[in-house]
Design a protein around this nucleic acid. Structure first.
Lengths: 202, 202, 202, 202
DNA sequence: CGTTAATCGAGACGGTACGTCCTGTCTTCGG
DNA sequence: CCGAAGACAGGACGTACCGTCTCGATTAACG
């Protein structure tokens, strides 16, 4: 939750505490409805409340609106990123790229595209989304850095650019079947090889 | 327009013909509102009608709904793709990539992200979008093919993969400022060089 | 094309005209619900809309809120006041007082008390209510005046005071069964006689 | 209060006793809000609780709802009725009628109209209200009876009818400014004289 | 003197209704 | 037949209260 009272020192706010079961019920209901094929437009707070067996006010008490709820739902779903360290850059990257645009809970797959319109408009949303991505980027940076240290990659490799070039095609393909002729499954390996065919040292 | 009666050969239906000025006014109003920062959710038919000085029914007579109107607006804006032939692959690709995610009318920039949710859900929308992209992809394929013929690129180059790897990072960066540390302007050149540093023939 | 030739003889506003059937349905639904025993508090716009088979907006388009709707409903029910002229003051007054606090439609009986809280607070409501009463008061003034002219009543009779003294006990008794020991039916005659026993000219 | 633990004989229930300060604070808050112009509809338990600095449950522990609270508040305010005995009917009645529709605490003036809707619907409420009025009626009956004994009034005077005819106009005028042309202040005397001009013996 | 039990403020909870806004359809009139 | 205007049924919005329910913290009298 965005502003839950988690600070241990706090003397505990007065009044009845918020129910964590309710939190879960709301997020579950949201995912269910998304999975049933609603657009973000069609996904109504009213429907979520009904499905979760919860009053609307209980939702608005926790989130400022549909957008915030979606982002938080996503954060809940995105567990910690995989942290591969096979000793081989290629293998590590394959693992990471295979996780791009995916969540443990399959119902959440369709959330990403729904977020894009709001990412563009709402700076706060954009910040939240970056927060969500940053840990994953950091893992990939570490993998690349280790590759450089081991001499598998050029020392002058532009890490940020590499991140973008590896991730972007896989993500777009997964989310939108962007390029009709590309096979989604084999894409990570092919992207890596295409790029590293030229970047790999010696 | 989806079903405009402009073709001269048609037997010409009786009654007052549809005004093309109205068509333009509606598209213009749509773009204005998008430019003013509305989400697709917030962008209402009612607002478009009011802004265009047009009755709601006049819009529904032309398009089936918000989505159809958006797609058509986009089609109107996307002029023909640039067809560069400088004799040099790199120069040609820089021109093409610079046009990725861009339209003659700057107001339309924010339409792409708005479309993504519907691309994912609505197969018809997806097909329309692919139609829109295909001509641009074809141009890029031709550029690459010429590069191969001229010996600038390897003969065994995977053209479709290359398309995706060049286009995806630029598009995501333009639409969503996906990667905070990448400069949007220089990105096309850097993407090309990173990829071709390894792909270019000897 | 955009501007219409204004101020023609036609008072007719543009667009689809409001349906009178809808007006009736709303008033009917309101009366039904009141008759079913709802307090004004409990009488919800939402329930009225549902009962009338009408959208809430359709109600708000016509009335500013519950209060205005109630007053208008009342106005609809209160037909024109009886205009008795039997040639005898007492007989005329009995007729008028028998109509006090009553409506052609029995369902409306409970509206009066519901209005009192708002009459006191809202000046606009108060004005509306006085408008509603004024025609009835005028009729009674005329009756009294004719009584004076015919010599049945003193020439120095305070007409306004007489109005109040005749009407108030009957109204309160009808609406609230104010005085448990008074018979509602015979009250008009007794009130008149009590007052006129002292006021009638010798 | 409906069930306060103030009676000394009671076996005294265990646990913390209810605070009388809280009772007062709640009634005070209620009067304040009524005085500030809230309708009974608008007068919310939540607002009363907030104003009184009290939890909502603390109110519901004492009263079953808004209505019960209002009635109890009224009972608190209505002190004992004046018991005049000047030796003159007219003077006694002027004193009594001047007190009609009035309370020691001016803020309570607006409660009467608020009660009317519930008087009509809820028999229990109606009974409570009659209990509240009865002592005042009894005082007026005594006054009238003494007037008859002293020969100031006819022996065959209908006491109940006289009560109603004197009280009703003054009450309606005070609560609702029923009759716009009547002066509220002089009304008691004029009502008495109009009625007694005809009723007084010889 | 600590236990016990009902109190207190606070505020979360499932609901209902509010009054607004938009959707997609429909009438009306005038061009 | 087109087009502007706008009414219509329906449904979601986000807010405000309802009456009930936890919470931790008081606050007596009883043991």
């Amino acid at each position: 939750m965005t502003d839950m009272t988690t600070t241990a020192d706090a003397p505990r706010s007065p009044g009845r505490p918020r129910s964590t079961r309710v939190d879960e019920a709301i997020v579950e209901a949201t995912l269910d409805l998304l999975a049933e094929g609603s657009t973000l437009e069609a996904l109504s707070i009213e429907a979520i409340a009904a499905r979760a067996g919860v009053g609307k006010a209980t939702i608005y008490r926790r989130w400022s609106g549909k957008e915030a709820l979606i982002v938080d739902t996503l954060r809940t779903l995105k567990g910690p990123p995989p942290v591969p360290d096979t000793g081989n850059v290629r293998a590590d990257l394959v693992i990471l790229l295979s996780a791009v645009g995916r969540t443990p809970d399959a119902r959440a797959a369709s959330i990403f595209p729904c977020m894009m319109p709001m990412l563009q408009r709402d700076p706060a949303m954009h910040r939240l989304y970056q927060e969500l991505l940053e840990p994953r980027r950091q893992v990939m940076r570490d993998v690349l850095r280790r590759g450089i240290e081991r001499g598998e990659l050029r020392a002058d490799l532009d890490i940020e650019l590499t991140l973008a070039m590896l991730t972007a095609p896989v993500l777009l393909q997964r989310l939108l079947r962007w390029h009709p002729k590309l096979d989604e499954e084999s894409l990570p390996e092919r992207v890596i090889d295409a790029l590293f065919g030229g970047i790999a040292a010696d």
